[in-house]
């Protein structure tokens, strides 16, 4: 089994703090981490390899510094990691990102399964996985919470839906995006950390993946950000005091007066 896991570098969101004076996100000193959802993707890839053999290769598109994070994925059990990095990739939206990743994956040779996290915690789009599958011309399933079986060139998995789950079977190669429920990522082993330290992370440029320059980076991105703003949460908090029964009565009075849909 050749497994590819796609990862993205995101800001460590636990430390997202707002500067109260300027109302902007404070970024100074904010650590970069592997997108939390991608850690489940890495773990799932490594588990499949441990059960059935094969190789796990991690791929990311990003600035040169992302190589450090890719080294961490080696510590978590990945065999190799490749970074797609080039000034020409800058400004990519999800379409250009999917195209770029698809070329990197094609360059690796035959692949059986591609695993992505459900979404990244900075952009929250959840678009790259399905878009990548379309670029590679292979099927995909999103929100996978469990892989039931991989056998004879097919994968059977459970996809989380709004009201339960579906069991879906696809021939390989295929793309899946995984949710947190799928596993619990391991802590890097000492051996893994030593291996990560020594790992070489190849960096592939636009030329090396033979990218069409009109389809990468900003130029290959149909969507453009025209403005950004920080939403204002101007909340007039109102505290309800008193004994529990009194608090309950006041709250119910208040909600009923607002004509809200309180009963079916």
């Amino acid at each position: 089994m050749n497994i590819v896991v796609c990862v993205k570098q995101v800001p460590a969101t636990t430390e997202v703090k707002m500067n109260k004076e300027t109302n902007t996100i404070i970024r100074e000193g904010i650590e970069a981490i592997i997108n939390p959802f991608d850690t489940y993707a890495i773990e799932e890839g490594v588990r499949i390899k441990e059960q059935g053999g094969g190789k796990v290769t991690v791929i990311s598109m990003g600035i040169p510094k992302v190589a450090d994070l890719l080294r961490e994925t080696i510590a978590l059990g990945a065999d190799e990691a490749v970074l797609l990095s080039d000034k020409a990739f800058a400004g990519a939206d999800t379409l250009a990102t999917a195209y770029t990743l698809s070329l990197g994956i094609k360059k690796m040779g035959p692949v059986d399964l591609i695993i992505c996290g459900k979404q990244a915690t900075d952009g929250d789009t959840a678009q790259v996985g399905p878009s990548l599958a379309a670029k590679l011309g292979i099927p995909h399933t999103t929100y996978v919470r469990k892989i039931e079986e991989i056998r004879e060139g097919t994968i059977r998995c459970q996809r989380l839906t709004e009201d339960g789950y579906e069991v879906i079977e696809m021939p390989l190669p295929a793309v899946i995006t995984v949710v947190k429920e799928i596993n619990e990522p391991r802590i890097p082993s000492f051996k893994g950390l030593m291996k990560a330290k020594k790992a070489e992370i190849p960096v592939w440029t636009a030329d090396e993946i033979a990218a069409d320059e009109s389809l990468i980076g900003l130029k290959g991105s149909p969507t453009w950000v025209v403005s950004t703003f920080v939403p204002q949460h101007n909340v007039n908090s109102e505290m309800i005091e008193g004994k529990p029964e009194e608090q309950a009565k006041i709250l119910v009075d208040k909600l009923l007066s607002l004509q809200l849909p309180l009963s079916k």
Binding site: L95, V128, S131, E162
Partner: peptide, 23 residues
């Protein structure tokens, strides 16, 4: 932007090579 919608939309946009804004 449901489970199905967020899976269908990026696949369609990718085939059509057009822009898609999520959620």
């Amino acid at each position: 932007a449901t489970t199905y919608g967020r899976s269908l939309a990026p696949r369609v946009a990718s085939v059509l090579n057009t822009g898609l804004t999520a959620d």
